[in-house]
Design a protein around this nucleic acid. Structure first.
Lengths: 347, 347
DNA sequence: GCTTGAAACTAAATCGATTTAGTAATTTTG
DNA sequence: CAAAATTACTAAATCGATTTAGTTTCAAGC
């Protein structure tokens, strides 16, 4: 009769299977590795063991296997990119590729890297298994955290190489873009081409970055023209939300001859609303985005972007991560990366 | 004097540090965990150990830590999504999110899942550490493989739960879209709106999917009209490549009133070429894509797509993965997911 | 002078799986 | 019929780090 594994029981081990069947752990291990032929276990025993494995719902402990299986001559180093489950993988995948490249360059006969992306639920980074006891990674890049996560990180110095992307935490190495600078440059671009009624398009829920961009944009416009730019608030951050919000603004007849969208998703939606309203980009309305979309270059017309220089950011992150792992530098420090400007047809 | 770690030496262990300093491994471990205060090690000893740790370039063995650190009451299950380094993460991230959702639903006090993305270099899946000896994952989804990888997989049945996405391998559970079906439907859509000179846009380097799409498209057109559609071949698969290729075709005055792009990246480029040539979509040239781009919906005009139904595919993958892990079904099987059609303004 | 306490450590068990070296029982071979 | 070979297993070591339960040495207290 099948004894079903219950989730509230101790995990089933090889030893437990062995006891259940009445053989030694070695016999069970042999069957699990499908080496019963060469080690000539009796077919009947093999069947009994197989049945027990199934009935008890055995799931191997990979940590134990790994410890045993690895070649003691090679150094196995685990790197992780930790990002929130809810965030997009665009920048993350660039970081991963760059980390992998650097890891590959340092990989040799005695040294082996594994790089992986692990996700946590926004605000619940602290629950990630193995984070605190350093039993999962030798080094990590952490990004897309929420304030709860930052608070957790601020109170616990993780005892291994950590680089934080996009947040300022005094006890870690942080790499940051400069959204304020981006907002300022965006304003200068729009004002420079003669816009009189600039508008800033933001999602309702602002992140630290989007808030700073919008803020600096408004400050700069106010400083140069004496008037506050209009703020159009989208419900969310998808193109649909952006389109709806701007449509409402334009539909109400409120002026707009220049638009700064604090994310490209919103810019994409804005394009639609502008075209639907019969206006042209950039003649009637110039648009500036931030360059967080893979194909900003292929918007119609191509989107002018002022935003984080991902190339530089990724480079910084990865250099610092490897420096930390080599203990070449231990003191936490903040690195600010200035925005890059890509002038294209939209402004 | 600092003894530098050399990469061709054995990895440094806690034990080696202990010997080097002349203390026990416990003392070293205590210092590594920063618990020397409560265990009252002499400050001088702590310093000596710290120095040795730095000088020898110690890197902890995470597998060993994990084995020791984990709570024996909880089951820790590792799931991986293995994808080629070179491939985009669009579908992969959807798989990850869905796996995470199912894992979360099954997570309880005695059961804990970690889901991560691990990358291999295209064609070198076999070199991935821990793949063969099952020491890294309890279950994996493998995707974006090259023929070399498939050949490797075909000859070695991995001894744990594996679902392969997008490839047919007789010894594994495979979930497949039906690119041939997509190509056929794309042809029907274009012919259905009266196109007389359909064109198919492909990259020079065809994958199995893109080849099948193009092939079925051509076959269907030939069957219904008696003539072969023109094939426009782009150098690569980026929008730029697509734009260049189509520009050349249109520039040469060769006819085109309907376009099937076998990837959305190419379609995006095609849009540009079509507009540059002063033609309109869909009036002059109707365009059908495959829906592998995040924002096909926000192309201008929105792109009509016939392609894999990602929702269904991801659902299938994840159900099968969990079934395999629960040993509810062990026999490999192929699951074909028919394409979904999203009629939008471009065709 | 003997106990008590603290300081500064160490030995050995432990985590779970694998593998090597071996053993006992039976069968084959010269 | 004894020696060799085969069958069908098991005991114990191992992987690397952590932790518990000591042990030793020295100083202070009565």
């Amino acid at each position: 009769m099948a004894v079903m594994a219950r989730s509230d029981q101790r995990p089933v081990t090889v030893h437990m299977i062995a006891e259940h069947v009445g053989v030694s752990a070695s016999a069970v291990s042999t069957v699990l590795a499908d080496r019963h032929e060469e080690r000539r276990l009796a077919p009947a025993t093999v069947e009994k063991i197989r049945k027990a494995v199934r009935d008890l719902g055995y799931v191997p402990n990979v940590a134990a296997r790994r410890l045993r299986a690895h070649d003691p001559e090679v150094h196995h180093i685990e790197l992780g990119i930790l990002t929130s489950f809810e965030a997009p993988l665009f920048l993350v995948s660039r970081v991963l590729r760059q980390v992998q490249r650097m890891a590959d360059a340092r990989t040799g006969p005695g040294r082996n890297f594994s790089v992986s992306i692990a996700m946590f639920h926004a605000g619940r980074l602290r629950e990630m298994a193995g984070l605190l006891n350093a039993s999962r990674f030798n080094g990590v890049v952490i990004t897309n955290t929420l304030p709860e996560d930052d608070a957790f990180l601020a109170t616990t110095t993780l005892p291994y190489a950590v680089v934080v992307l996009g947040r300022r935490l005094p006890n870690y190495c942080c790499v940051l873009d400069t959204p304020g600078e981006s907002g300022r440059r965006a304003a200068e671009i729009l004002l420079g081409r003669g816009c009189r009624r600039p508008v800033v398009l933001t999602p309702a829920l602002l992140t630290q970055s989007t808030a700073e961009r919008a803020e600096a944009f408004c400050t700069t416009v106010r400083a140069q023209t004496g008037t506050e730019p209009a703020r159009v608030v989208a419900e969310g951050f998808t193109p649909t939300h952006g389109a709806d919000a701007l449509r409402a603004h334009l539909g109400a007849g409120r002026g707009c001859d220049g638009l700064y969208a604090v994310t490209d998703g919103l810019a994409l939606g804005a394009y639609q609303a502008i075209k639907d309203a019969g206006r042209t980009i950039p003649k009637d309305i110039a648009v500036v985005g931030v360059g967080d979309h893979e194909h900003a270059d292929f918007f119609d017309p191509p989107l002018t972007c002022v935003g984080p220089s991902n190339e530089t950011i990724v480079e910084q992150i990865v250099t610092q991560l490897f420096d930390l792992m080599n203990r070449r530098r231990v003191k936490p420090r903040e690195t600010f990366v200035p925005p890059s400007v890509a002038m294209r047809a939209s402004a």
